[in-house]
Design a protein around this nucleic acid. Structure first.
Lengths: 195, 195
DNA sequence: CAAAAAGCTGAGTGATTACTCAATCAATAC
DNA sequence: GTATTGATTGAGTAATCACTCAGCTTTTTG
């Protein structure tokens, strides 16, 4: 394994466990068993380590999503699989996801952050995937009629919030994930109810 | 206004704008037009300022929720009003909420944080409010049958996620908030659909 | 009014820490 | 075998920043 990967691994461990700010580059170097200097040979700044972890994780996530879309028979199935990725991350207490949930927002909120564009670009890509999935579901009859754009945003919000809550507050028993999916299914049900 | 409140106001401004870690106590003192020393006369540590802001905001939130429950005619109406509080916070770009959304998670994630109990206690209170609202809705027929505990968690997750997304990414146009509420209403519909 | 208490100041401090750099080592090229 | 390039080291540095404290001012109390 490359030195660079060692650094990323150690940083992911420490950042997710103790938080980005509470972790020093000294600690990262120690855990990765490299000198502190080399961190700054591979990364311009400490923040760049965080960003690289984020971009890598997100891009991997987008790739899985693409695979899911190709394999799922219906739009609703694709959505279920997308939701499932989140559950898996929660169950395995995936460090990179925990890291995102804990420490990411700060740099995003600043409207003048130089990373905002890169980040929002990836988020937009995910959003478009979801919109596609919803439209597909509406075509194949597995998802009811609704405006795909806002619905995609709602779904994204729900899963972000749920992942956050589940990872920060407590483990999530099966009935919670079942309830979440049931909630979505009812909201997206193609067969209109009698109001 | 008291000096202490001046400090809280300045801290809320700066923390929400630039982030907790990127803000120094020196800056807070300057904006509040007080000496740096007095910050530590009123607060034991910098973190205590953040916690006080959080506790105040959360307690105010819980009070509004109580009022809402007393006034709303049905469970579903109470839920709608609860959702509405979030929309108002987003629309007004409420600083204390932005602050929570941005900087809070870190101290929560550590299982051994001394604040974890206080925080989770308040969260549990909110959760119980929601459970009560759902049960009430099921009794008065405005909400369909579902397990109240997990459903409350799902609703809480959804609103946390939505507030986060709306505040960090972009303004939220009316059709988004409408879509969110429509999503909830369909998921909670008392009239079962034909599967 | 005197004394005590509370409120307030801002220069100072000690510890931390992201980042640098001159020097060494390893590998590749010629 | 020598030169060049890239990889790696770790001691050093400059800056930051949360927090302290001795003393001043204002308010309260008896």
């Amino acid at each position: 394994m490359s030195r660079k990967q060692d650094i990323i691994d150690a940083a992911t461990d420490l950042f997710s466990q103790n938080g980005y700010h509470a972790t020093s580059t000294h600690q990262v170097a120690k855990l990765a068993e490299v000198s502190e200097g080399i961190i700054f040979y591979y990364f311009k700044t400490k923040e760049d380590i965080l960003l690289e972890i984020f971009y890598d994780s997100f891009d991997t996530f987008l790739e899985s999503l693409q695979r899911i879309m190709d394999e799922a028979p219906t739009g609703l199935d694709a959505l279920r699989a997308w939701v499932g990725i989140h559950f898996e991350a929660i169950d395995s207490r995936a460090k990179n996801i925990l890291l995102l949930v804990r420490d990411f927002p700060a740099s995003l909120a600043n409207e003048d952050s130089p990373h905002r564009e890169n980040i929002l670009g990836r988020v937009a890509k995910l959003h478009q995937f979801l919109v596609k999935i919803i439209k597909r579901g509406q075509k194949d009859g597995s998802i009811g009629s609704c405006d795909p754009e806002p619905t995609a945003l709602v779904l994204r919000s729900l899963l972000i919030g749920y992942t956050r809550v589940a990872m920060l507050e407590n483990p999530h028993p099966p009935e919670f994930s079942k309830a979440l999916w049931g909630f979505c299914r009812r909201a997206l049900n193609p067969n209109p109810s009698q109001a």
